[in-house]
Design a protein around this nucleic acid. Sequence first.
DNA 1: ACCTATGTTATCGC
DNA 2: GGCGATAACATAGG
Length: 266
Amino acid sequence: MPELPDVEVYKRYLDRTALHHRVEALEVRDKGAVRAGSPAALSRAVRHHRLEASERRGKYLFVRLDDARWLAMHFGMSGFLRYVGPADGEDDGEARYDRLLFALDDGHRLAYSNRRRLGGVQLVDDPQRFSAARKLGPDALAVSEGEFLERLGGKRGGIKSALTDQKLLAGLGNIYADEVLFRSGIHPRTPVERLDDKARRGLYRDMRKVLQEAIAAQADPQRVPNGFLLPHREDGARCPRCGGTIRRIALGGRSSYFCSRHQREL
DNA sequence: ACCTATGTTATCGC
DNA sequence: GGCGATAACATAGG
């Protein structure tokens, strides 16, 4: 789940639950979920500090502590957050993948949960510098049209690999890159250089719409508006926009789904 | 047993 | 140095 819309939903969830609460203790159930530094150092860093603010950049969620340090959270392919109260059942199987538990001063705990252990949490001094060090591109919902066009202009290969390149643009992953291309009627293998200015501007607009609509639907495939590809990611499925046939191809070791009727090849 | 799955990173060949 | 393909990491489900 965790592409830009999902992480935005996590951010809003965090903002209305754990934010403004003080961390009393950190339980590290899986050392591997601490991406940098030692679990002890992370515990020391968060204990007795309030979670003050949050920011999202691409698929990263940053949480500011009251001493101006930050937690950088990445969710890999299966991570999410859960805010659990003392009365909430803990042994329902869900809790099995809670890797980190932040015990808060309101008696609740914020769980960083992740079935597959890709991703994790680490302490960073500054999200900007962290992002710069990793050469992370601008957030897909914050980037201006001008910068989008400029960055895309420096690209050579297929449009889908450009859209999912976090150094070019942060936030789109396999699912939402497909979704944007589906909306724009562009085949995922189309070389960037074959897209004229109009098509590129269209991509920008469609990207914004897709992301905003997905967030409004809580990034839930069940709630997403009709006309989204997301619930129809299956070879042979009917295209919800034109009645064509959804096809699956492999690109860069990943599945790409597209409509063979309205996303014309090359 | 094999394939698939929302991510990132390293490596190889062109 | 860029780009595509591939494997690796980890875990579960079909």
